[in-house]
Design a protein around this nucleic acid. Structure first.
Lengths: 106, 106
DNA sequence: ATGTTATTTGGTTATATTACCAAATAACGT
DNA sequence: ACGTTATTTGGTAATATAACCAAATAACAT
């Protein structure tokens, strides 16, 4: 790849991969409102405990969330706040896609 | 999933999936500098023509890029400019991850 | 019409992701 | 120490992605 540091591109792709899943995206958006424990996500997402735990550790591995064990519960929270504005751009793309589809019927 | 529109989460995940690949991320970053034809990417990326073409159509399908056929060449360009600021947040995460690693040796 | 260049499409195989189950670990209350 | 709750880890099967090759399509030049 021309003009770029392949290791940097790979690092970025890793973070994007961590976000690129419905469940993990949901988790990140929920964490934008405040910390939550694994058990809450299990209930909300409707998946196995192990499945949710793996999604969370993937997000942690990517450096997007951080962990705080308190008592028998494990709480996750967002580590990098800009993630939220960042998702605004994604919404802008969706809006632009929708407008394009609508304009086909005018 | 509580409090969210599953279709919206899926739409967002689709866009993130489109970005979550080294080659496609490279393409997007190059397009941030201006339009480019498929043949240029083939050369720069060092992959098969068909491979690059498929990456590009995935980005197009996600609404991130747009196409302009001129003569025998096909030019791609970014459709939504905010993608670029958006990638700044990813870099912030990487920086934060690196600082954390470094602090382990202090 | 024919050849050349640029690109897309279809098929196949290799690789990566995801989800679940079962078992292991950890912290707490009794 | 023992049971209970919360979470992680390992294994496995199903599904999704990615890369290449070969063939099809498109536009232009001869």
């Amino acid at each position: 790849m021309k003009d770029v540091n392949p290791a940097l591109v790979e690092a970025k792709a890793k973070i994007l991969k961590a976000l690129a899943h419905q469940t993990r995206l949901y988790i990140v958006e929920e964490l934008a409102k405040g910390e939550k424990c694994v058990c809450e996500f299990v209930e909300e997402v409707g998946a196995d405990f192990s499945t949710v735990s793996k999604h969370l550790s993937l997000l942690k591995e990517a450096g997007i969330v951080q962990v705080d064990k308190r008592g028998q519960k494990v709480f996750y929270s967002l580590k990098v706040p800009c993630i939220i504005n960042f998702l605004d751009c994604i919404e802008a793309i969706i809006k632009s896609n929708l407008e394009e589809q609508n304009s086909m019927f005018k």
